[in-house]
Nucleic acid binder design. Structure first.
Lengths: 237, 237
DNA sequence: ACCTGAACACCGTTCAAGT
DNA sequence: ACCTGAACACCGTTCAAGT
């Protein structure tokens, strides 16, 4: 460890004092690992390596891996674009398309979203915006209140499905072949409608799904006990 | 290893020749581990231990863990109860409720379903039945063809959400508190409708969600290029 | 208070070697 | 063809020890 007289000093300027650890730095590094290699690339050890420390050090800022994932998710939710300038009828769809884009921007984020409780305030913000949009568009309050859950769930699940199927290369093609190969005697409907089932670009299917949900939410009364009732909370399950 | 003269022989009858390994035995053991401890309890090494062998031996019958999970899912799909005796309008809902029950029967199965391509024939069976039910109920063919995807996705996602939130004890309560504590100035709609958002037992919310989707599917026309068009497949995305 | 190295108890997967 | 043990390259998490 003694410094030899031949030692050429190397400035530490280009890699100066390590950036101090922080929750924000950990979250951001986690998100970077996600875009680099998806959920399989995300681990506390890799984050620690990227931050030039050991994994044990992270536990000062983060309770555990799943807590970190919740923080990462909330950070990503902050990127959702809200368009209150749009007419009420379009606000909901626009916000949900933005949510989808955010979830697809980093591979694996949608899978995290599918299994993680939306704890953070960014999730409150999204739900507030959706609820307001539905109400402004004339959807009865109790249907809007139950409906936002369906909307977020559908978008999250669709995004998760897309990322899961994207990985192994030709899974979608394999699925389509499975449907194409379904014998017409056993699966008459599937073979009859095969072209229809797989028709259309993903974007228009997504938009159609949103329309289906919004229209269904607007038109479907709650079970009689709850519909148009006073604000007395019904018994929880 | 020499047998001492005092050795009392122990019959091998009660643990006779190991049951021969087989794909079915592996799948079943995997499902058992799921009910015992959820997804966290499922590993190739544990399955191997339960079958009295080493994890390497499983690779004769199964490509890898995710392939095994797909097989487990398909086996579970086999437990879905179909009621073709019901009137067409009720068949779809009944099958989807049964799907939910199957996914909730083993903890973690819904999470597998949320991330796994439905490859097996049992999934074809489900889709065939749903498609037929919608058509018999008078839903236009192209809407039914796109709609079954939404229905299965919603049920799967809801089941996955339920199992994910069930684990850590009081996550749901924590979420409800987060919503209850949302300041009325920032989140006027959420505070205003708080009671409504959390009202009602899970079962009636699930049924309502199905009604929303089915009604929306029946009433929402596809983008004009595809609706009521000939069976020419549109360009894939 | 924050960071570190080393350890603990796990993973999926591969591979040479046995039968 | 099927099974095995051992190894490889990883995990999350804990903990005593350092500063």
């Amino acid at each position: 460890m003694r410094q030899s007289s031949l030692h050429v000093p190397v400035s530490r300027r280009d890699r100066p004092a390590k950036a101090p650890l922080s929750r924000a730095a950990i979250v951001e590094t986690g998100l970077d690992l996600l875009v680099a290699g998806g959920l399989a690339n995300l681990s506390l050890r890799r984050i620690a390596t990227a931050l030039d420390t050991g994994s044990a050090s992270l536990y000062v800022y983060v309770e555990n891996l799943s807590h970190l994932q919740a923080l990462m998710l909330d950070a990503a939710y902050g990127e959702i674009a809200y368009r209150p300038d749009l007419p009420p009828g379009e606000r909901v769809g626009a916000a949900l398309r933005s949510l989808r884009d955010v979830l697809l921007r980093r591979r694996g984020l949608a899978q995290i979203a599918a299994g993680t409780m939306p704890e953070g305030e960014k999730s409150l913000r999204l739900n507030e915006f959706l609820l307001d949009g539905l109400l402004e568009a004339g959807v009865p309050a109790e249907r809007a209140a139950w409906g936002i859950d369906l909307l977020v769930l559908q978008v999250t699940a669709k995004a998760a499905e897309l990322t899961a199927w994207r990985e192994p290369g030709d899974v979608i093609a394999r699925c389509e072949r499975a449907y194409a190969g379904a014998p017409a005697e056993t699966y008459p409907r599937l073979s009859q409608l095969h072209d229809l089932i797989f028709a259309g670009p993903g974007a228009s299917r997504f938009d159609w799904a949103l329309q289906v949900l919004i229209r269904g939410i607007a038109d479907t009364p709650l079970p009689s006990r709850l519909d148009s009732s006073e604000h007395t909370a019904a018994p929880q399950q």
